[in-house]
Design a protein around this nucleic acid. Structure first.
Lengths: 258, 258
DNA sequence: ATCTGCGATAAAGTCATACGATAGAAGCGG
DNA sequence: CCGCTTCTATCGTATGACTTTATCGCAGAT
């Protein structure tokens, strides 16, 4: 399901050959089609799936190695790595994960992370924000309020809102987490498309966060952001349930709740 | 400064050729020797620095691409990416960062992240821990208490202590952050080597966290872990100051406080 | 003079091939 | 049955040729 990607383009080029191979292999690993055993034998895959040279294949493997999905041992073979080695927070891994196996536990984990990180980020933003930060966050909020729910521009604005808050923290390490948060948020928004009520109701929450940050009230900003994330999780889980119950299309793959 | 790596081995093999090239390039990017302009021209680097085949060079570049350090565009060249694209939380990027440019701001950012994440993790651990988790955390604590300060086994135990707490959270996304936290911690421990007082004083803090987790007291575990992280930051900054003031060896590169 | 479009060009991407090294398996001999 | 040797599979590295892509500059048109 070729979803539109509103966030910054993923680092590895998907219309390049090695990118496609990497994605294929990544999905195979993430879904568990290959466990901790060897990956699909080099030549075998080359011959069957798509005719691809060893160069492209190796570069794809290098990408996956860099992201912790596989481990290439000098001579014994290239094996799928155990899940705890994966860089789950890497934007690419995350998007592959959504595509391959968006089970409920995983969603809960990600939202739990959001629940820990975003309130803290909001607090920090409230303490450190410059007027430029405010302008950015406010512009994003306007974009959310003015646009039609779940329109492309609106979603983009929502993502920008959260990203701007991270940016206002002036913390590179935290900033790095924002890409994971954004990816989670984006996925959940695409899932919720149609639930206009949820979107409308979230607007005041966003505004309240904005106001708290303007007031430099860290505690308030943190508390309001925490509420926002929790609401977001609830509506997302509701949509997830709906989709599992009704849809039979591609998105219904989501029912893997292993 | 070939520091001993007590954590699990980094994903990319450092005694393989492409790994060395990747490290070289990564350090060049991270220190800012190449900014957002082009990286060293392909052939030029091959010929001058180390005679290395195009294959190895390309695979190194693919690794860096996967970690967000560089961006390769077909005709315009392979450029160093702006810092906000880097996967700072990637274990390899983190270790390269420590090696290349461990400035104080960066340390503060990382400890700030720890301060947000680890207390939350401790709370979760207190709520969800199994008896197996307790056994693991307790064993790590014993290792810390019994060993000599900053001995290899002791440091390993310290890392294991924090990792076990993350593990007890039963949250894959959070678990992923643990590698970054562990790397930060490891670096700070190696830096602090010699400051025995700081180590001894941290022991009761660790024990208190452990006890709170055993008692399933999330609030207490969170608060104590927060205190522990703050103390850790303070002693680390103190050591950093000491090193800058006295040492002239390799570690003195740390004074880059840009 | 400015804009438009097309081609030259440079760099990344892809392919094919070859060889070295070694971990692990298979086979051999004790 | 066990230990040693050999064999093979697979990764790592090297090389050269060809393809694709996108930038840049030139030439022509408006």
């Amino acid at each position: 399901m070729r979803v539109r990607d509103f966030s910054r383009p993923t680092t590895l080029n998907p219309d390049r050959l090695f990118g496609q191979v990497a994605q294929k292999l990544a999905v195979a690993v993430i879904t568990g089609r290959v466990r901790a055993g060897e990956v699909l034998p080099n030549e075998d895959d080359l011959r069957s799936e798509i005719s691809v040279s060893r160069t492209a294949y190796r570069e794809a493997v290098k990408i996956l190695t860099a992201k912790g999905l596989v481990e290439a041992r000098p001579k014994s073979g290239t094996r799928a790595a155990p899940r705890e080695r994966w860089n789950l927070l890497d934007p690419d891994v995350l998007s592959w994960h959504f595509e391959a196996d968006p089970n409920e536990k995983f969603i809960r984990d990600l939202f739990e992370l959001r629940r820990f990180v975003e309130p803290s980020a909001a607090r920090l933003a409230a303490q450190r924000r410059t007027s430029a930060d405010i302008a950015r966050i406010e512009a994003a909020y306007r974009g959310m309020a003015d646009g039609a729910p779940y329109a492309e521009a609106t979603i983009r604005a929502d993502l920008a809102f959260h990203e701007a808050i991270f940016s206002a923290c002036q913390n590179a390490a935290l900033q790095c987490l924002s890409s994971a948060v954004i990816a989670t948020l984006q996925w959940s928004l695409l899932l919720k498309t149609g639930d206009e009520a949820a979107y409308i109701e979230s607007l005041p929450d966003h505004e309240h966060v904005l106001l708290a940050i303007i007031d430099r009230d860290g505690d308030l900003a943190s508390a309001r952001m925490a509420g926002l994330v929790i609401d977001s999780l609830n509506t997302t889980l509701a949509s997830l349930g709906t989709h599992v119950a009704t849809e039979t299309g591609k998105i219904a793959r989501i029912k893997h709740t292993k």
